Computed example of a mutant assay.
Amino acid sequence: MKIKEVIVVEGKDDTAKIKSAVDADTIETNGSAIDEVVLEQIKHAQQKRGVIIFTDPDFPGERIRHIVTQHVPDCKHAFLPKHLARAKHDKGIGIEHASKADIQEALGAVYELVDVREGEITKQDLIGYGLIGSPHSATRRERLGIVLQIGKTNGKQLLRRLNMFHITTEQLDEAMNQIIQEERDEK
């Protein structure tokens, strides 16, 4: 699988893992202390080839995603659920611990951020599905992030992300029906 866009990752271990899974070029942020030089490289790459942000599914990874998105709008985003990015023998979480197949799947499901359209998914929709305001909301949001491949979110981030990725109410309904059925099967 060849990736046209340049993939933004956190470090050299992520680059090595990405390159073992797909044919792609990367830019490393070297952690969350991203300097202006790296941001300019990302901006240049976005103008020339496009950029996919593919950071670790943890707080520092989300922080990097946010910083890059603020400085370089219109980047695409790939997400890997935490359970697929866990190290086998320690507590580490990162892209470098994922399997080649999981990396290929995450990059194959890339979303492009777009402006939020009013009137799409609402807070009431999220309440109705128990994604906010219920004791099991965090678990449901995490499962939804995996099913839709949009990453882990809190309630406020979820509404914004669903609308930015133009997830339709039909796609939300389908994903939630799957999650509800899985919950029933677990009981």
Rank of each mutant, 00 (worst) to 15 (best):
M1L: 11
I3H: 09
I7P: 04
V9I: 07
G11Y: 01
K12M: 09
D13S: 03
D13W: 01
D14L: 09
T15A: 04
T15I: 06
T15V: 03
A16V: 03
I18W: 00
I18S: 00
S20K: 01
A21Y: 02
V22Q: 05
E28A: 14
E28Q: 13
E28P: 00
E28I: 09
T29P: 01
N30D: 13
N30C: 09
S32A: 13
S32D: 09
S32G: 10
A33W: 06
I34Q: 03
E36F: 05
V37D: 13
V37E: 14
V38D: 03
E40A: 13
I42H: 08
I42G: 04
K43Y: 04
K48V: 14
K48T: 14
I53N: 05
F54P: 00
F54C: 02
F54R: 08
D56G: 12
P57S: 07
P57T: 08
D58A: 06
D58Y: 09
P60Q: 08
G61P: 01
E62T: 06
R63K: 15
R63P: 02
I64K: 01
V68E: 09
T69P: 01
V72S: 01
P73A: 11
P73D: 00
P73T: 10
P73E: 04
D74N: 13
D74M: 15
A78K: 10
F79T: 06
F79C: 12
K82I: 12
H83V: 13
H83E: 15
A85Q: 05
A85R: 00
R86G: 02
A87M: 01
A87N: 07
A87I: 07
K88W: 06
D90H: 12
D90K: 08
I93T: 03
I95T: 15
E96C: 02
Q104W: 01
A109R: 11
V114D: 13
V114R: 15
D115Q: 15
V116C: 11
V116S: 10
R117L: 13
R117D: 02
E118H: 12
E120F: 14
T122K: 13
I127P: 00
G128T: 03
G130D: 11
L131S: 08
G133P: 08
P135W: 10
H136F: 12
H136R: 14
R140N: 10
R140W: 10
R141N: 07
E142C: 14
R143E: 15
L144H: 12
G145Q: 10
I146C: 05
V147L: 07
L148M: 08
Q149S: 14
Q149W: 13
Q149R: 14
I150W: 14
I150A: 11
G151M: 05
K152T: 03
N154A: 07
N154Y: 04
G155N: 03
Q157G: 02
L158Y: 03
L159Y: 02
R160G: 14
R160F: 09
N163G: 11
M164D: 04
F165P: 03
H166R: 11
H166P: 11
I167G: 07
T169R: 15
E170S: 11
L172C: 07
L172W: 05
D173M: 12
A175N: 12
M176P: 02
M176K: 13
N177Q: 15
Q181Y: 06
E182K: 10
E183A: 05
R184G: 04
D185F: 13
D185Q: 11
K187W: 14
